[in-house]
Amino acid sequence: MEAKIASSEPETAAAVIEEPAVTAASAHPPDVEEKARISRQVASKWVKTSVLRQDGRVAQHIPETRIFTPDNLSAMLARYGKVVMKPVVGTGGSGVIMVIKSGSSYTIRHRRKATRYRSFGGMLAAVKAIKRKRSYLVQRGIHLATIRGRPIDYRVKVVKVNSRWVTRSMVGRLANPGMFVTNLCRGGTMLSSAEGIRRSLSGSLVRRKKNEMRNVTRISTHLLEKHFPGIGELGFDYGFDRSGRLWIFEVNTRPH
């Protein structure tokens, strides 16, 4: 039986910080929230992605993802033209790299800097200097919907309270100008999910797109809890491409 998730998500970005909706779930004593904070952690993005791939209803929303090797990077760039590389273990957008192939040249975007290389070998050396000895994933780059040229994605946070999963928030995260990562700790701007969808896609799609995220969250939560008993909170990172297709980029068991 799949996990049922009750929704107590705030309708505005401000409510996330200042005035979260008071529900039966949020009215529980502080020790319940504390239990969620010390729940089981699963650090590896690769392990969690592998679990989510087991259900076709979720797998169809996951961009192709591989463990980094030079051959995998080359193949993914040849297929998609753009990839995002990120540490297997890491949070907050730290160490995330975008690589774009254009003809025979390559561009690396890291933080606010974009550097062009004339050969795969030159680009690869630069990637290795950034990643150092850390294990990395290579994920298909998605052309996200934007607001005035700034990419936007979404964070859906759910917590388990008294054996029941509850949606705590569903918010948009707008990348800082000149950045491709949307993390708030990297200068991203938080706004309500409804506003993000309305401004980047269409107001007529708000309800449908929010329901898509809720549905994938429900199925994914069931899968992850089945494989990792003891998890108590999850943060799902979603994005819609320019055509409105939903993608899930990763799941955190210790969401900020």
Results as ranks from 00 to 15, higher is better:
residue 206 V to S: 04
residue 186 R to G: 13
residue 211 N to Q: 13
residue 187 G to K: 05
residue 225 E to C: 02
residue 222 H to G: 14
residue 183 N to E: 09
residue 184 L to N: 10
residue 184 L to F: 05
residue 216 V to T: 07
residue 220 S to I: 04
residue 124 L to D: 04
residue 125 A to C: 11
residue 122 G to A: 13
residue 123 M to N: 10
residue 143 H to C: 15
residue 182 T to V: 05
residue 153 D to R: 08
residue 156 V to I: 12
residue 196 G to V: 00
residue 216 V to P: 04
residue 125 A to Q: 09
residue 219 I to T: 11
residue 142 I to L: 13
residue 226 K to S: 03
residue 217 T to Q: 00
residue 157 K to R: 10
residue 170 M to Q: 04
residue 227 H to I: 04
residue 146 T to N: 06
residue 137 L to S: 05
residue 137 L to D: 06
residue 158 V to E: 01
residue 176 N to R: 15
residue 212 E to T: 08
residue 161 V to F: 12
residue 119 S to H: 05
residue 129 A to Y: 00
residue 136 Y to E: 10
residue 150 R to M: 08
residue 177 P to W: 07
residue 210 K to Y: 03
residue 202 S to R: 10
residue 214 R to C: 11
residue 165 W to L: 02
residue 204 S to C: 11
residue 213 M to Q: 07
residue 206 V to Q: 06
residue 170 M to A: 03
residue 197 I to A: 01
residue 223 L to K: 00
residue 192 S to F: 10
residue 150 R to N: 06
residue 181 V to G: 03
residue 176 N to A: 15
residue 213 M to A: 01
residue 165 W to P: 08
residue 211 N to Y: 08
residue 209 K to R: 09
residue 130 I to M: 10
residue 126 A to E: 14
residue 135 S to R: 15
residue 207 R to K: 15
residue 132 R to K: 13
residue 144 L to K: 14
residue 128 K to N: 12
residue 226 K to G: 06
residue 210 K to S: 02
residue 224 L to G: 07
residue 183 N to G: 08
residue 166 V to C: 08
residue 145 A to N: 02
residue 170 M to C: 08
residue 142 I to V: 11
residue 178 G to H: 15
residue 138 V to G: 07
residue 144 L to S: 13
residue 224 L to P: 04
residue 203 G to K: 02
residue 141 G to E: 08
residue 138 V to N: 04
residue 126 A to T: 11
residue 163 S to Q: 14
residue 197 I to M: 03
residue 219 I to D: 02
residue 140 R to L: 14
residue 215 N to M: 15
residue 178 G to E: 10
residue 151 P to N: 09
residue 146 T to M: 09
residue 135 S to M: 14
residue 212 E to C: 11
residue 207 R to L: 10
residue 172 G to Q: 05
residue 126 A to K: 07
residue 230 G to I: 05
residue 207 R to M: 05
residue 187 G to W: 03
residue 179 M to Q: 15
residue 171 V to S: 01
residue 201 L to T: 03
residue 179 M to W: 10
residue 184 L to A: 12
residue 160 K to N: 10
residue 139 Q to I: 06
residue 205 L to V: 06
residue 191 L to M: 12
residue 184 L to T: 07
residue 233 E to S: 04
residue 162 N to S: 12
residue 220 S to R: 10
residue 226 K to L: 08
residue 139 Q to R: 08
residue 134 R to P: 01
residue 148 R to L: 09
residue 149 G to P: 09
residue 188 G to F: 03
residue 191 L to H: 04
residue 198 R to W: 08
residue 152 I to W: 01
residue 176 N to C: 14
residue 209 K to D: 00
residue 122 G to H: 11
residue 138 V to R: 05
residue 204 S to F: 00
residue 162 N to R: 13
residue 210 K to V: 01
residue 153 D to N: 08
residue 179 M to P: 13
residue 160 K to G: 09
residue 143 H to I: 15
residue 144 L to I: 10
residue 122 G to E: 12
residue 193 S to H: 12
residue 174 L to V: 08
residue 213 M to W: 00
residue 165 W to F: 05
residue 158 V to G: 01
residue 217 T to K: 00
residue 197 I to V: 11
residue 159 V to A: 10
residue 203 G to E: 03
residue 179 M to L: 12
residue 215 N to S: 15
residue 200 S to Q: 02
residue 157 K to M: 09
residue 125 A to D: 12
residue 179 M to R: 13
residue 173 R to K: 12
residue 228 F to I: 02
residue 190 M to H: 04
residue 159 V to M: 13
residue 186 R to D: 14
residue 210 K to F: 04
residue 182 T to P: 13
residue 211 N to T: 15
residue 175 A to M: 05
residue 204 S to R: 13
residue 131 K to Q: 14
residue 223 L to T: 00
